[in-house]
Design a protein around this nucleic acid. Structure first.
Lengths: 127, 127
DNA sequence: GCTATATTTGCGAACGGTTCTCAAAATCAT
DNA sequence: ATGATTTTGAGAACCGTTCGCAAATATAGC
């Protein structure tokens, strides 16, 4: 029989993620737990973040330096506008992409100054 | 006086990059150099790739596992369509983004099945 | 509540990619 | 060739992440 144990470390990590509207690294989360003297290990932080991602309640992305960062995130398909100053994340619905720069600024006040776009799939010769 | 020395390792690395239309990791380039018994060190591969990127003749991106990969690349602003099977890269001009899925398939035969889009800038409160 | 069983945890070691250090080798100007 | 300067190779160091395992914890059944 397969069980899921509800543990204090998991609750604490999920809580930190839930109250933060920016991508956090495992190290950042670990720091906060240390400050709160939670006695949670870094390994557990990594394991729990990965678990949250698998469950679909968090997304992850690699920052510029290749460090994995996590954000509590609804599973619906959308994209992110990330502030270069505060790191804050705003959701950008997929349909908005066509009008992206103008709408981001006009509708949300987000001053776009860069973006990363990559498409994946199969090229003509790989069918 | 500041000089730039033209060396064999640099030529060889640039040559590998120039003939390959896919993102290559430092390790992959190093392997090829080993096969050719070029006697070039991994450190030099890293240093040279970074140098090519700074000079603007190559771009880099992190793959899913966070490994840095490099591609010889014109400096003009555009995006990439990466084949999931062969790794081949096709340039996607920036203006095409609005019509991306249809045009990619109709015009290039690239069957889109995923994409990564991130916007950067300053949010309303960070001005 | 207690016990048995399965899951989770913390610790520390291992890992893999990248960067650094530094003496030896290569490049270029003269 | 010679000397000043840059680049290189080898290996150590680094850093984020993963792994292995014994101890601790959570749950189910009594």
């Amino acid at each position: 029989m397969r069980h899921e144990y509800a543990t204090k470390p998991r609750e604490q990590i999920a809580a930190i993620l839930a109250t933060e509207r920016r991508y956090l690294s495992a190290a950042e989360i670990f720091e906060r737990l240390e400050k709160a003297e939670a006695g949670v290990s870094l390994s557990t932080v990594y394991r729990t973040l990965e678990r949250l991602r698998e469950k679909g309640v968090a997304t992850s992305r690699l920052d510029e330096r290749g460090e994995a960062t996590y954000l509590a995130c609804e599973p619906s398909h959308h994209h992110h506008a990330i502030c270069r100053v505060c790191g804050g994340v705003e959701d950008v619905p997929c349909e908005a992409i066509e009008r992206f720069a103008r709408s981001l600024h006009d509708e949300r006040g987000f001053m776009l100054d860069g973006h990363t776009i990559e498409f994946f799939g199969r090229c003509k010769s790989c069918g």
